[in-house]
Design a binder for these strands. Structure first.
Lengths: 192, 192
DNA sequence: TTCAAAAAGTGACCGCGGTCAATAAATAAT
DNA sequence: ATTATTTATTGACCGCGGTCACTTTTTGAA
């Protein structure tokens, strides 16, 4: 037993998380300031960093939680069988991912686990995204010359590409969904 | 004539850029500090920000210049005709793009032009990357059910995916090139 | 109940990017 | 040449993330 976690600790952490959510609700993820959070939570700044390694670590938790919920919902729906249905199934996730520029940048930065021993919440969500799509790929009627896991990786790559272009002024004509549809039809149902 | 640029201005800017390159050579892009640059250039901090909107703007210039040179070289070589040759042709570019985590993150952040009127150096390079690959796609013997520009966008998307995974501890087994080869063979030469 | 060790919390302080009113230098007008 | 106007430079200052020596609280052994 190497875990004598004090009740006080949990309470403080909960206060910090709750205060963070309030601040995000008011100012967005981008607008969150650590000083604002600790003031609202009624603790000192140093306490914040005793609970979270840095500001990004808190953001990972907040954003990861939201993403987890959306993944739960996506998983609960009926499995998509066409490209259109696939895009619809992922829509809420992609919309949240691109809700703020700051959020998208942070997602990209933490989409891969920096070290095996510490897979953060966001890297975990990307892994889940991949697994969910992989299952869909295995059960839908897409190309069969390539294994489902590779198809899923491609879906992820093209989704990220589509989302990136959403923030790009040069590609304003098309919506994110339209672009993704073009990509995925070429990727999932090639017509040589 | 709305451009009475003083000679002094150009000189100061050149000093700042030169000093920046020295600092990068010594400490890497990640290690560059504005205070270090201005000290080395012998100007005040405020002067830096009169010449560059922010630190990122300087980084865009430095990294964009390097990328431009690499694109020149890639363009000068013989056009790749196979997936293997394609990867080789892009190798030096991808290697530089992933030379530092900081560099890769910055590239992603500025790969798209935030506003049409101000296409930054990095967004410009991504556009060039796309155009170069598009020409290769048009002249090589890859799948023909999809236009070259779409093929090129896919190459970019998969390249970014491969590079991202380079920083991910979960995918250490494969090299960036091996991953990219698997992606691009599935993307460019599907065998339904 | 007492007390020492461990854990949690504090806030003054630092690093560094970025700002801006004041100053100096260059250019144009007389 | 002298003055007026524009342009470039300066450095004290600010915001905000992050640190750390110190204090307070909790815990567990005596």
């Amino acid at each position: 037993m190497q875990k004598p976690i004090q009740k006080r600790t949990l309470k403080t952490r909960a206060r910090l998380l709750s205060a963070s959510e309030d601040v995000v609700a008011r100012d967005g993820y981008q607008g969150l300031r650590v000083e604002e959070v600790v003031k609202s939570a009624g603790v000192a700044k140093g306490t914040f960093f005793a609970h979270f390694h840095d500001k990004d670590a808190l953001m990972e938790i907040l954003i990861g939680e939201r993403l987890s919920t959306l993944l739960d919902q996506a998983e609960a729906e009926v499995e998509p069988k066409t490209v259109e249905e696939l895009i619809t199934a992922l829509d809420s996730i992609h919309t949240f991912m691109t809700s703020e520029r700051y959020v998208f940048d942070l997602l990209l930065r933490y989409s891969g686990a920096a070290a095996i021993e510490e897979i953060g919440p966001i890297a975990h969500c990307f892994e889940r995204y991949f697994r969910v799509v992989e299952v869909w790929m295995a059960n839908a009627d897409f190309r069969k010359d390539v294994p489902p896991d590779l198809l899923a990786e491609g879906v992820q790559a093209f989704s990220i590409q589509s989302m990136s272009l959403k923030f790009c002024a040069l590609h304003e004509a098309q919506t994110m969904e339209d672009r993704l549809e073009i990509y995925l039809k070429a990727w999932l149902t090639p017509a040589m």
